[in-house]
Design a protein around this nucleic acid. Structure first.
Length: 287
DNA sequence: AAGAGGCCCTGATAGC
DNA sequence: TGCTATCAGGGCCTCT
């Protein structure tokens, strides 16, 4: 689910809802996420105020009062839900602060504020919550990540230089977070379709024009997706439980066997596995 | 240095 | 119906 656009949607909604609020209580039901949540986690963030919620790549960054920073990754299946106290009390007499919200065994973490709480749900537990000491720590932690597609440094010169003497295909580079960060398997396929480039094409064979297309279309597709509330595959929902709609704009992802949507192209969408990940593409108009 | 592969984990779906 | 196999949007680690 969560690539850059989906995480951005979550970030915006968190900012609207929890900024300047104080964490009154923390419940951890399952510490075994990708990284084990230490036993002092709850006390470390209790009574801290939310300064701001930010995002880099697919990471959510919650700045807390007193310098500490909560870094969150949603992995493959993580979602964050907001439960409003008023609404909650309309439907039940249970205690807002103590009751295990909603019948879901994968609700692993709750941050409880006065008027609402946020719940982290993650069936596959590939996501994580990490507490960092300060900004310097954060910088170190995210140091391995490449530019976001929106960064001005993500330009033709950078691409050509990066691809030199490399042997991988372009699709795996788009998924390589050291090269460009924030793109995942869905948007990688969509970007390459829009750029008319075959996912299995060796990156070092791409010319300036093709690199330019990849850059422009990365920005465009991710922005479009953000504006449509992200893509809801399986069950991605935003914090209000609403679905995004960008999946309705997919040209290739999960369209195996269907006609190519490009005007004047008679192709059909193929699905092939390259470097262990499925790729969707039209083998007629993507060269 | 670069690339391939394995692994973490649950759930949905397909095939028998 | 109930079993098993396969696959899923990510990232980190190890080995060659």
């Amino acid at each position: 689910m969560p690539e850059l656009p989906e995480v951005e949607v979550v970030k915006q909604s968190l900012n609207e809802n929890i900024i300047h609020k104080t964490i009154k209580k923390v419940i951890v039901r399952n510490r075994n996420l990708r990284f084990k949540i230490p036993f002092n986690f709850e006390n470390s963030i209790k009574n801290k105020k939310i300064i701001k919620v930010d995002r880099f790549s697919k990471y959510l960054i919650i700045y807390l009062s007193g310098e500490k920073i909560c870094l969150i990754h949603l992995g493959m299946s993580g979602t964050i839900h907001i439960i409003y106290k008023k609404k909650f009390l309309k439907f039940t007499n249970a205690s807002f602060y103590n009751s295990p919200c909603l019948p879901n065994k994968h609700n692993h973490i709750e941050l409880i504020f006065d008027s609402l709480k946020i719940i982290y749900n993650d069936p596959r537990r590939f996501g994580f919550f990490e507490l960092l000491k300060n900004k310097k720590d954060l910088k170190k932690r995210l140091n391995h990540l490449g530019y976001e597609p929106f960064d001005k440094h993500f330009n033709v010169k950078y691409l050509l230089k990066f691809f030199k003497r490399k042997n991988k295909n372009i699709k795996s580079f788009l998924l390589d977070q050291k090269f460009v960060s924030g793109i995942g398997n869905i948007y990688a396929s969509e970007i390459l379709f829009k750029s008319k480039i075959n996912p299995n094409k060796k990156a070092k064979l791409l010319n300036k024009t093709e690199c330019g297309l990849i850059i422009r279309n990365s920005k465009k597709i991710l922005m479009d997706a953000i504006n449509k509330g992200g893509s809801s595959i399986k069950n991605f929902k935003n914090t209000d439980g609403k679905h995004g709609t960008f999946q309705n704009n997919f040209y290739v992802y999960q369209r195996e066997g269907l006609n190519c949507k490009r005007i004047n192209c008679d192709g059909r969408i193929k699905k092939k596995i390259f470097s262990k990940r499925s790729s969707f593409f039209c083998n007629i108009c993507q060269k």
